[in-house]
């Protein structure tokens, strides 16, 4: 028995010390997890001003301006507060999301003219966010366990991942490809393909800067290749670890917008 114990112990130590060597070769799941972390969870909290320019197929443009606050609440859950400044008819509207990984997200919309705290049905997260080419899911992140991930190519500076939905009925894509930057794990581009294998939608990171030590997408673009529309997001006044308090993400601060968004 003693010999067996020693053998097991030796095997255990070999396994333990060889682990870092194995980890150097990241699996597709690990790459996606790191990318998800880099894209949506940087810092304890984050704040940014966003200008969104929506370009229609005929070249006409519409613009939205909002401030977004994000707070990490536990390992995966998050809270978002979006406060609109423009256009004039949605000014002072606020949108509150409690992103719950284990159940449907909770979403509220504050309508200032009615002083109404409107709860929004959970619904499809792959629908347009405020009429743009970005989806709700692009703003708050897609659960990484909702797809299977496969590393299909690795170059000197990117990983290319193929993602297939576990529940194909719940989404409009058959699969999507993502190119992830090897140095900072931010996705550079995502391409969405339909059941016929046709590319119909893409999301790109156009400009990345390091803010408060976190590589950050400062400009991104979503294009609907079928409709011929596109949306450009420009981020400014980005900051991390602002010490945002959890209480901001509540009905109280829908009624009375916090200084973090009004100043």
């Amino acid at each position: 028995m003693k010999k067996i114990s020693v053998l097991l112990l030796t095997l255990f130590f070999i396994a333990l010390f060889s682990a870092p060597l194995v980890a150097a070769e990241l699996s597709a799941d690990e790459i996606v997890a790191k990318a998800n972390q880099a894209s949506y969870y940087a810092g304890a909290d984050g704040k940014a001003d966003v200008t969104m320019i929506i370009t229609a197929a005929d070249g006409g443009t519409r613009e939205r301006q909002f401030t977004i606050l994000r707070l990490n609440d536990g390992p995966q859950d998050q809270k978002f507060y979006v406060y609109f400044n423009a256009p004039a008819d949605v000014r002072k509207m606020a949108f509150l999301v409690w992103k719950n990984v284990s159940r449907d997200d909770d979403r509220w919309l504050w309508l200032p003219a009615l002083n109404l705290n409107k709860r929004i049905a959970p619904g499809d997260k792959r629908t347009s966010f405020v009429g743009s080419d970005f989806y709700y899911e692009d703003v708050s992140g897609r659960g990484i366990e909702e797809d299977t991930h496969q590393l299909i190519e690795e170059t000197a500076d990117t990983y290319q991942i193929r993602n297939e939905p576990k529940d194909p009925g719940s989404v409009e894509f058959a699969y999507y490809l993502v190119w992830i930057d090897k140095t900072n794990f931010l996705p550079r581009k995502a391409e969405y393909y339909d059941a016929q294998g046709q590319l119909y939608r893409q999301v790109e990171a156009l400009r990345v800067e390091t803010v408060d030590g976190h590589p950050t997408v400062m400009e991104s673009k979503a294009s609907d290749l079928k409709a011929g529309t596109s949306t450009l997001n420009s981020f400014s006044n980005v900051s991390y670890d602002n010490g945002l308090q959890k209480r901001i993400f509540s009905e109280r601060f829908l009624r009375r917008p916090p200084r973090e968004v009004t100043q």
Binding site: A113, L114, N115, L116, N117, R252, R255, R256
Partner: peptide, 14 residues
């Protein structure tokens, strides 16, 4: 505590 004084629109209920 928050206090709001004056003419205002008020709504609650589901």
């Amino acid at each position: 505590i928050d206090v709001k004084l004056g003419r205002q629109i008020l709504t609650w209920g589901t």
